[in-house]
Amino acid sequence: MLLQARDIGVHFATPRGLLRAVAGVSLEIDAGETLGLVGESGCGKSTLGRAIMRLVPIAEGELLLEGQYITRLEGTALKQVRPKVQMVFQDPVSSLNPRRRVGSLVGQPLSVAGWSRRDIADRVAELLAQVSLPKDAADRYPHEFSGGQRQRIGIARALALSPKLVICDEPVSALDVSVRAQVVNLLKDIQDRLGVGYLFISHDLSVVENVADRLMVMYLGRVVEQGRAADVLARPAHPYTHALLSAAPVANPALARTRQRVVLQGELPSPVSPPSGCAFRTRCPFAEARCAAEAPLLRPATADGQQVACHFDFSERFAAQATGVPA
């Protein structure tokens, strides 16, 4: 197993109290595998990604990278692990230092790792070729490139030290549709060639379903459902997953007119004072008294590994709706 996270909790002190941005999240990612992580803004998905990067302090739980505990590594020990986990950021503008040339940006991880100038130049040329950027890109500044090309620069930088795991934090959300597909395809090609594992964070289900082997859905810092991507998308077991799928607009006018939509009422409650019991109950169309009293645990929903955190079993009902056939 490449990465294992057990019961990860990330807390932030805010003026209004302790914010449990991530609570009790466990996950596993294998080499060459993509775990999709979806949820709306404020659900803790980016914080989880940054916790795995060890960019925010982990309050609870354990992180294992290739069997090694990295939860509490510091200093040199942490520095030695860092190259194995790298990140592709959301914003192609702010993730690149505007005052550095592309060659210097892509070579930065190498220079931090103590490579010689000559080796860096060779490796940078190789990396630029890998992400299909022209050779002369190295001597230019980021602002001379379009959004999609800048994201390629960010990907080249993440790949510099041959990481085992790449955290992709909304890597295509800021890009135009036509360019989005280019970058998604590039990420897939790289995975096929290098066998890296991806944690692919996105709010956009349509992108995730195109890249993910497995899928995890988060709501208010907790995992509400996970399983094989195809299973979760075809047979969602949690009302929230079902609502997300239903809310995502489909690029098919005929289907859009006929399908049944669940439009969730209300908005995300404050994560500082989450509802008692099941955090989703305030917006859940099926909530009952039990949901306020008792927090549901993640339990197996089907035989093939799909798990859900809900007291009730909705998979049959949702599966019927997902195919467009009224239940």
């Binding site: 549709v177 597909a181 349509s206 992108v207 379903e209 195109n210 195809a230 690029a251």
Partner: peptide, 26 residues
């Protein structure tokens, strides 16, 4: 056609389908 091809269209596309992309940028 390129825009439509580059848009994953709910439900049918799976992990191993490649999105059609439009080369270059605007």
């Amino acid at each position: 056609r390129g825009l439509l091809g580059a848009t994953p269209s709910g439900g049918t596309a799976g992990r191993h389908t490649r999105l059609a992309d439009i080369p270059g940028s605007v």
